[in-house]
Amino acid sequence: MLDDRARMEAAKKEKVEQILAEFQLQEEDLKKVMRRMQKEMDRGLRLETHEEASVKMLPTYVRSTPEGSEVGDFLSLDLGGTNFRVMLVKVGEGEEGQWSVKTKHQMYSIPEDAMTGTAEMLFDYISECISDFLDKHQMKHKKLPLGFTFSFPVRHEDIDKGILLNWTKGFKASGAEGNNVVGLLRDAIKRRGDFEMDVVAMVNDTVATMISCYYEDHQCEVGMIVGTGCNACYMEEMQNVELVEGDEGRMCVNTEWGAFGDSGELDEFLLEYDRLVDESSANPGQQLYEKLIGGKYMGELVRLVLLRLVDENLLFHGEASEQLRTRGAFETRFVSQVESDTGDRKQIYNILSTLGLRPSTTDCDIVRRACESVSTRAAHMCSAGLAGVINRMRESRSEDVMRITVGVDGSVYKLHPSFKERFHASVRRLTPSCEITFIESEEGSGRGAALVSAVACKKACMLGQ
């Protein structure tokens, strides 16, 4: 009897593995994704193909990295998701002549009506938060230079001027797309009239992360975010950046690689679950690469896999709870928690219980395998993109072996128990001629924006502006 049951459990697990095998990517698959990513990057950089390229390769006008001589107080704003952060950054000489960066910050959550109302409502709310922060720190009387981390696709015309191309991540505030974001912020500050600010720089969160990590390690020339969304930036040779005049030196390019796949480059790798996630998203047909990796989508992918296993009578005796059938019910943090389970399955059992399920031991094991399959594919897909960037940098610099540091931020990278190990191992397999160091950014977005502002202020002083 026991043997029969054991055989049935083994057969069930084997069927589960057959279904989950769809998520496995072979090294040849990853090399294919990497080569296609490089081709799209090239198209994004070139003037004649930029418009139709899915990977936009947006110039950021960040050319210099901090040298350690900029000092002063800077205000930093960070808008990239449902939370908005205001930070005071003091850049100065530390002990023994070292450079020191001290920060104080406060988080504000953005109400739904500000995210989806008008641009005026959104930026009025942001300036209200700045006003509140300055009151708390008794700094209303000071006109501070301000660095703005704005983590949406922007076409820069200068370091302090950028046109919002399109909202992502659930934002829909009308009247912002096609307009200068810094102008919208300046107008809102003017409307309030109770404080003055000098907006000197606007950067993407990947750029802010790279600059913040450069402060720790001067070989950091790539910034990457794996959180709600997924994106990367890197220092490109100016001669390859056709959208900006000049051939000397390097400029940081914001790849906006989340949109890779929007022209069909990933079609052969998309599964039924991916198509369902895409169809029910706020932007169907867009940001397809990001939807395979980002935390906004990972939990939902797992939920759809679990429903398939229920329908195949391989999980929960073929019956799903009402909660499990509800879109968004299986949160991405559950994926991390399930994979963090120590082996007694308590954590998995508790999560499934909150979803109205009474799982068996085998159910718990199957749910864990589903989570591992989805998150491992995410790590491997992400590795193909980064390997594409790094191999490109090595080739354009004609280096036999390139040493490089990548600064990384984002909740999936930082909080998932195995993502970074799987990701690092896969990147290294795909970049055999590179020695890569990964560092995690601390308060990256805010500190990085302030350091970019410090560079901009120093330049302005040198130019006598």
Rank of each mutant, 00 (worst) to 15 (best):
M34Y: 06
L25V: 08
E52M: 15
P59H: 02
V374C: 13
G72S: 05
K459D: 15
L315V: 11
E440M: 15
S69Q: 02
R325Y: 11
E112G: 11
Y125W: 01
E27R: 09
Q106A: 10
L47H: 08
K102V: 06
L309I: 08
D274C: 02
E40L: 03
N283F: 04
S100R: 10
I436S: 10
T326S: 10
T116E: 02
E245N: 07
R422V: 10
T116S: 08
V412Q: 04
C461D: 14
E70C: 09
G356D: 04
N313M: 15
V62Q: 05
G223K: 02
Y413F: 04
K458L: 07
K102L: 13
G147A: 02
A53K: 08
E112C: 09
S353A: 10
M34A: 07
C461W: 13
F84Q: 01
E331K: 02
V305W: 06
K90H: 15
L2D: 12
Y273N: 05
M202N: 00
F148N: 00
D409P: 04
F74R: 15
N240I: 08
L25I: 10
L47S: 12
G407D: 03
A53C: 08
C129H: 06
R46E: 10
E96M: 14
G44W: 09
E272H: 04
T228F: 00
E96W: 06
W257K: 06
F74Q: 06
G170P: 01
E17R: 12
S174Y: 05
G249A: 13
F260E: 05
G97P: 15
F195T: 01
Y125D: 03
R428G: 14
L79W: 01
T116A: 07
K169V: 02
G328F: 11
T82Q: 01
C213E: 13
C220I: 14
G258Y: 00
F195I: 10
G162R: 00
S426G: 13
L88E: 04
G97C: 12
Y215E: 13
C434T: 08
L314D: 12
C364H: 02
G407Y: 01
N391T: 11
R428E: 12
L184F: 01
E95Y: 10
E395S: 09
G295H: 00
P417N: 14
H141F: 05
K172Q: 06
T376F: 11
T149M: 00
G388D: 03
D132Y: 09
E177C: 00
E331Y: 07
V222F: 04
C457T: 10
E40T: 08
E112W: 03
V182W: 04
T354A: 12
R85K: 04
V203H: 00
E236N: 01
M115R: 13
V408M: 11
R250G: 15
I404P: 03
P432D: 15
L357G: 11
E22V: 13
D135I: 03
A449F: 00
G446V: 09
F195R: 04
D274I: 00
R275W: 13
G448E: 04
F316Q: 08
E242I: 04
E128L: 08
K291A: 07
E256L: 01
V33I: 07
V207Q: 00
I19N: 15
K90D: 10
E216L: 14
F195L: 07
G229S: 01
G68K: 15
E70A: 10
V222I: 12
G80P: 03
Y108W: 00
T149Y: 03
Q287T: 04
R333P: 07
E70T: 13
P284A: 14
K420A: 12
R308S: 13
E322G: 14
Y297N: 01
T60S: 08
R250D: 15
L430Q: 14
V305N: 12
V452D: 01
V389K: 01
L77N: 03
I390L: 11
I211N: 15
T354D: 11
S411I: 03
S340V: 12
R63M: 12
T354I: 07
V401K: 15
S109I: 06
D400H: 14
Q286T: 15
P359Q: 09
A282P: 10
S383F: 03
F150T: 02
E300A: 09
D344K: 15
K39D: 06
A378Y: 04
E242L: 10
N166H: 13
E177R: 03
T361W: 08
C233E: 02
L25G: 07
G44M: 01
T82M: 03
V253H: 01
F23G: 07
I293D: 02
Q286N: 13
E120Y: 09
G183N: 09
R303D: 04
E70Y: 07
M107R: 06
C230W: 00
I225F: 03
L185T: 01
R191Q: 01
C252Q: 06
E120C: 10
M197A: 15
G229N: 02
G178E: 01
T326H: 13
K39G: 12
H380C: 12
D262W: 12
R308A: 06
A450Q: 05
F152Y: 02
V452S: 09
M393H: 11
K12R: 15
R63G: 14
G72I: 05
S373I: 11
E399K: 12
N204D: 03
E51R: 10
L146K: 03
F269D: 10
M107C: 06
R358W: 06
Q337A: 14
K296T: 05
N179Q: 15
S383L: 01
Y413E: 03
L77R: 01
Y125F: 06
S445T: 00
K169H: 02
G97E: 12
E70N: 08
D194Y: 01
A384N: 00
L270R: 13
A21R: 10
W99S: 15
L165R: 03
Y108F: 08
S441N: 07
V154Y: 02
E265K: 08
E256S: 03
R43A: 08
D267H: 07
H380Y: 12
E70Q: 09
M8A: 07
L355S: 09
C434E: 04
D311A: 06
H141G: 12
S212K: 07
K169T: 02
L357N: 05
D194Q: 15
E242V: 07
T332V: 05
R275V: 14
R308C: 11
V16E: 09
K169W: 02
L30K: 09
V86W: 01
S69V: 13
E443Y: 13
A450R: 00
T255Y: 01
T332F: 01
L134V: 09
K104M: 09
M37C: 08
R394I: 09
N350K: 11
M41T: 12
V199Q: 03
H141K: 05
L144A: 05
Y234W: 06
E95L: 10
L77W: 01
E22Q: 13
S375H: 00
R186N: 01
K39C: 10
G407I: 07
E312V: 13
V427T: 12
E14P: 13
S411C: 04
G72W: 03
T376H: 11
V455A: 14
C233I: 00
G328M: 13
E268Q: 11
